[in-house]
Design a protein around this nucleic acid. Structure first.
Length: 1151
RNA sequence: GCCAAAGUGGCGGAAUUGGUAGACGCGCACGACUCAAAAUCGUGUAUCCUCGGAUGUGCGGGUUCGAUUCCCGCCUUUGGUACCA
């Protein structure tokens, strides 16, 4: 005796949820005898705001797929977990003093409770939480594997670092040059050989290996916010200022971990062809990877004749003590600034008095040689004192004593800094000087006779650019360097020095905000130098400009104004001549980047189509040895350090500043418990505050950073396969069986970061032999975002209350309660179209406030003298149909207790009497901070989980974003009731009969079975809900309550509305759960019709329909149509010109 | 700016190897039941109209017997990206 009422729904749903849990129906085991199917949701970050109706959209869809695949006979893996490390919990801890571990667990419990109510078929025994040490133990383990790997470009795969060491030992790095050309061998060369490698000490070797590791430590930019004293994540920086507070953010270098994802650029790109992601998703990733094919072209720099090589002035560098600035000055020699010079003077003198044996030996030898260049000893350069220096030849000689051996690293740094100032540094060991002084002197002589570094650069150095348009090389009118380009220091002429200095200063002064605000602003400066075009031999001026980025390509470009818009603007702005190589394609007004033009003014390439000239010119450049085919990627390596507490600690130990991976047996490195989450203030993470943890053993240090939340999310789908494994991140058998995720459903906001990192980690694990697949996700579906409707009240701006005092002066006061004005009234007030009545209503409030708040001695008057109102979001639960619930609003926040309102309805009194306060509204994303969250619990309380599930699907196509609205939820609710009623008689008693089904009934059933199946395969759930409705409507009108029809239908409905389906299934007499039923096969025979109502169109307009048998030949149809009354009526006697008959579709007669 | 997706009744949306545009639902209107209301059930519901018809899928063209669907050119919205040579 049951009606599908609210009480009954809640009884049924509760009953089955607990039965499912009790019987562990969702527990999944490996079963090699059955095909597997892996359905995955993007696991949520458990926020304090709880689940809103947007979250379940994707989860419902995946749940339908999982349940459908199960009744189709697959062994379905459908797990859920939590992405539980992250910033919000840490910020919450800072604000409320609740430990992230505690708030995270609370939030997870709440999420699980909410998810539980919707009836998902998750196997919770496989739950993972990224913040659980038993999970992040393996995140750390994988990190170590990545750290212990390098990318073998020859084989295009990751390998163990041991294989790299083997290469180094047998042949140095000749076959596997440094991944980044910036790196040099300790000798200063681009490569080293096997014997050099063998001679390096442990630290040097480790430093070299670091430049190859797939997880590596290097100095990289962070977003430093001085005002907040902390480092910010990229998404906490908006337009160059901090997301909170709007403080300026600058780039600052810090030593951090990065993942060398750039090595995988090509495979991440080509892998897209094998996976089923939407085209737009692939485009976003392709865009991000940003591959461009082109070539490097080297231009000779026209020799400069600046007279004697200019002396060098070194300023001691900034307080932080990094690289000193270098400038070329006119007259005097100064190798430190005055202050540093002074500071170092005494110790230099001291050193000169007490030379080491080796130093003394060299000094005497140098004097005896009577060289034409003078050496100085113990001379300060920048902030260093060097052993010997020849200023004229910019040569520094350093003797490595026993102390030097202990500080190789510092020495290398020091050498670098000194060399950056234009000196060449040569080092000799103490031992060498003492035993083989001749050899040493010979080396010094050779150095003195060879050109100085500056001369060397000027004479031999070339300017290399990257271009995707080598075909335009004859159109190069100028070259542009990034301001940071190292050549700038070298090539600038005396005449241009000041201008260049000023420009560099300007660029430096420009903050991120300025640059972002004025992206298209054209600035630049001529260096005075010229480059020689390798093909046309033309000399073109070399400029610097901030529109050229140091970090991409070579940091230099060739300017082709007729073919590139930016180059064109640059040329116009600085009035540079423009060479036209594309004839009429260039109008003089704007650049034309076409490939279709025929080349002119291009020497031997004249007359060639640009498209064809690209390879031809590359070939020519390669032949001349001045060009090389090159592929560039926009993508950068992924910064992997976060200066945060609530994340995975890096499983490394620093000894003498060299990082070593922790041993596997020592994992996990657990996050130390602490209540101090404040940033350390010096740019390091909060862990830096825990010195006991950082300096855990003598001579050993830990990393104060933690990993980003991407780390835990990069592999969680693998852990689900074998979540309790204590020995491995997942067992090989499980990995092989469950394999790739068959369908992954989640939001498109993870298009780049999460999906790229997951793909990269899987590729690495694959390369290292742990996985037999190298793409994690076979198919990706992006569910649309569900946006919410926020409501606004309009508060009179603070500080806009005035009263006039005794002397009639207006005095500002804040002595008044908040006043809110109704939406439409506010609009009219703002644009000055208030009616008289409304104006009166407002002045009534003024009078009222006047009476209420004017104090003794404040003989004043309240005036609204501005029209400024602040929109303020109000909790949507206080608003219904735009009307604000005044009483609840007053209790909402304490400071609104005494709020005053100016109501919409001007007829009613402003205060105390009835009137409506109307709120404004806007569609925004659902967020706690917008107070516009719609909680699925409320919907379930009202309609039940089945209705919620079907309604969310009915809302529209899964992938489409849409605003939440409950309009129409009744339709779904009514459908379920109607469906229920098919199984019950008018008194609510359950009963089906066993009569044979009619043709119509069978047709209705099988049409639905077919449509549901194909809709689920196409992720078109909104249309499947429609189909169920149509079917229920048809069966209702057929008054069908036959078991043979209804039973299969319940199975088909069960993925969508599992609770009602399970109840009906049980009422139908099945003791086992419907989850173990089989999806009924549809049979084509029931769908067959033998005739079709052909629409008869005349001249393309449908005029009538005629019923013909489907197998009627065209000729017969034509005859019948031509003879019909319809045609007679419409042809008006005109003879038919042509008759088109599409069998089973349409007839069209052309007159 | 560039790249991508999308524009269909009052609303959510359906239909694309080119073949009856508006399925299904909401809303609305009318009717049945009821003393009444709710619930439920039934009927109708793109627009215009001289009631025969005409128009209609963002706008303007084109291809076709036939275009929401294909092609060209615009407009608008949303997402991605931001001087990437």
């Amino acid at each position: 005796m049951a009606e599908y009422s609210k009480e009954e729904i809640s009884r049924i749903e509760d009953k089955w949820r607990s039965a499912w849990e009790k019987n562990k129906v969702y527990k999944t085991e490996m079963d090699l005898s059955r095909p597997k199917y892996y359905v995955l949701d993007m696991f949520p970050y458990p926020s304090g705001a709880g689940l809103h109706v947007g979250h379940p959209l994707g989860y419902i869809a995946s749940d339908i797929v999982a349940r459908f695949k199960r009744i189709k006979g697959f062994n379905v893996l459908h797990p859920m977990g939590f992405d539980a490390f992250g910033l919000p919990a840490e910020q919450y801890a800072l604000e409320h003093g609740i430990h992230p571990a505690v708030s995270t667990q609370q939030n997870i419990q709440n999420f699980k409770r909410q998810l539980g109510r919707i009836g998902f078929c998750y196997d919770w025994s496989r739950e993972v939480q990224t913040c659980d040490p038993s999970y992040y133990r393996w995140t750390q383990w994988i990190f170590i594997q990545i750290f212990d790997s390098w990318y073998n470009r020859k084989k295009a795969r990751a390998e163990r670092i041991s294989t790299l060491i083997a290469h180094f030992e047998s042949e140095g790095n000749i076959s596997h040059p440094f991944p980044n050309l910036k790196f040099k061998a300790p000798s200063g060369n681009d490569s080293f050989n096997a014997s050099e490698w063998k001679a390096y000490d442990e630290k040097t070797r480790r430093e070299i290996l670091m430049t190859y590791r797939l997880a590596y430590l290097a100095h990289t930019d962070v977003n430093w916010c001085e005002a907040l004293g902390t480092v910010l994540a990229n998404d906490e920086v908006i337009n160059g200022v901090s997301y909170r507070g709007g403080f300026p953010v600058v780039k600052r270098q810090m030593r951090q971990w990065s993942l060398r994802i750039t090595e995988y650029a090509e495979r991440l790109l080509s892998g897209l062809d094998q996976i089923d992601f939407s085209e737009s998703m692939k485009d976003i990733q392709r865009n991000w990877i940003g591959k461009s094919t082109g070539c490097l072209v080297t231009f000779k720099i026209k020799g400069l004749t600046p007279g004697p090589s200019p002396p060098i002035v070194i300023r001691a560098g900034s307080e932080r003590g990094d690289t000193p600035d270098v400038a070329i000055a006119q007259d005097f020699i100064f190798t430190s600034d005055a202050k540093t010079w002074k500071a170092l003077k005494d110790s230099a003198r001291e050193n000169r008095k007490n030379p080491t044996e080796a130093e003394d030996k060299i000094w005497q030898a140098l004097r005896n040689l009577k060289l034409e260049h003078r050496f100085r000893r113990q001379h300060s350069i920048g902030r260093f004192i060097v052993d010997f220096v020849c200023i004229e030849k910019k040569l520094v000689i350093e003797i490595d004593g026993p102390i030097h051996d202990l500080q190789k690293r510092e020495d290398a740094e020091r050498t670098q800094i000194i060399e950056d100032s234009g000196f060449k540094v040569i080092r000799f060991s103490n031992k060498l000087v003492l035993t083989r002084i001749d050899e040493v002197l010979q080396k010094i002589k050779t150095e003195l006779t060879s050109p100085s570094p500056l001369e060397r650069r000027l004479g031999g150095e070339v300017l290399t650019v990257f271009t995707t348009r080598p075909d335009t090389i004859y159109g190069v009118d100028f070259m542009v360097l990034a301001p940071e380009h190292p050549l700038v220091k070298v090539i600038t002429t005396e005449a241009q020095q000041k201008e260049v200095d000023d420009y560099l200063k300007y660029v430096e002064s420009r903050s991120e905000i300025d640059r972002m605000a004025e992206v298209k602003k054209i600035t630049g400066c001529f260096t005075g130098a010229y480059a020689i075009n390798p093909l046309s031999k033309k000399e073109t001026p070399i400029w610097i400009s901030e529109y050229v980025l140091a970090g991409y390509g070579t940091g230099a470009i060739m300017g082709v104004p007729c073919g590139d818009e930016r180059d064109h603007k640059f040329a116009k702005h600085f009035k540079l001549p423009i060479t036209n190589i594309i004839g009429s394609f260039y109008t003089g007004e704007e650049a034309n980047p076409s490939y279709e033009a025929t080349l002119e003014n291009s020497g031997v390439f004249n007359g060639m189509l640009m498209r064809d000239a690209v390879p031809a010119i590359i070939a020519e450049l390669e032949k001349l040895g001045v060009g090389k085919r090159q592929i560039n990627y926009k993508m950068r390596d992924a910064g992997w350090s976060r200066q945060r507490y609530w994340g995975e600690p890096f499983p490394v130990v620093f000894r003498e500043d060299v990082p070593y991976a922790m041993e596997e047996k020592d994992l996990p490195l657990t996050l130390p418990d602490s209540d101090n989450f404040k940033p350390s203030g010096n740019g390091e993470g909060p862990l830096a505050n825990l010195t006991n943890w950082i300096d855990f053993a003598p001579g050993q240090k830990r990393d104060s950073n933690t990993m980003p939340t991407h780390a835990g999310a990069a592999w969680y789908f693998l852990r689900y396969m074998d979540p309790h494994n204590q020995k491995e991140f997942a067992g090989k058998k499980s990995l092989d069986y469950w394999n790739q995720v068959d369908v992954y459903i989640g939001g498109s906001e993870h298009a780049v970061a999460h999906l790229l990192y997951s793909r990269m980690w899987v590729k690495i694990l694959h390369d290292l032999g742990y996985l037999n697949f190298d793409e994690p996700f076979k198919k990706l579906i992006n569910q649309g975002k569900i946006t919410g409707e926020s409501n606004f009240v309009y508060r009179l701006l603070k500080g806009t209350f005035f009263y006039s005092d005794q002397d009639g002066e207006l005095v500002e006061t804040d002595n008044f309660p908040p006043v809110f004005i109704s939406k439409n009234l506010k609009d009219r007030f703002e644009n000055g179209t208030l009616s008289q009545k409304e104006a009166a209503s407002i002045s009534r409030v003024e009078i009222l406030l006047n009476n209420k708040f004017t104090r003794v001695g404040e003989k004043g008057r309240v005036d609204f003298i501005t029209k400024a109102f602040t929109p303020m979001r109000v909790d949507i639960n206080l608003v219904e149909n735009d009307k604000l619930d005044i009483e609840r609003f007053k209790n909402w926040r304490p400071d609104f207790k005494n709020a005053e309102f100016i109501f919409e309805n001007s007829n009613s009194s402003a205060h105390g009497e009835a009137g409506d306060y109307l709120c404004g509204s806007a569609i925004e994303k659902m967020s706690k901070s917008y107070s516009n969250i719609v909680n699925p619990d409320d919907i379930i309380d009202k309609y039940g989980a089945d209705t919620l599930r079907m309604y969310e699907m009915f809302l529209g196509p899964l992938e489409q974003s849409k605003p939440w609205s409950t309009n129409g939820i009744d339709g779904v609710y009514k459908f379920l009731r109607r469906f229920w009623n098919l199984f019950h008689n008018s008194t609510g008693k359950f009963g089906v009969n066993n009569e044979a089904a009619s043709k119509e009934e069978l047709r209705a059933l099988h049409k639905t079975l077919k449509k549901i199946e194909s809709d689920i395969e196409n992720y078109s759930f909104n249309t499947s809900v429609s189909e169920f409705m149509i079917c229920a409507n048809e069966l209702s009108s057929l008054k069908c309550n036959k078991r043979s029809i209804l039973e299969p239908l319940v199975i088909a409905l069960s993925p969508f509305a599992p609770h009602i389906a399970e109840e009906l299934w049980s009422l139908l007499g099945h003791p086992d759960t419907i989850l173990n039923a089989k999806y009924p096969a549809f049979e084509e025979q029931y769908l067959k019709v033998n005739s079709h109502a052909y629409p008869i169109s005349i001249n393309g307009k449908v005029r009538a329909t005629m019923e013909f048998a489907l197998d009627m030949p065209k000729e017969d149809i034509e005859k019948l149509v031509l003879a019909s009354e319809i045609l007679k009526k419409w042809s008006e006697g005109k003879p038919p010109k042509k008759v088109i008959i599409v069998q089973g579709k349409i007839v069209n007669v052309v007159l």
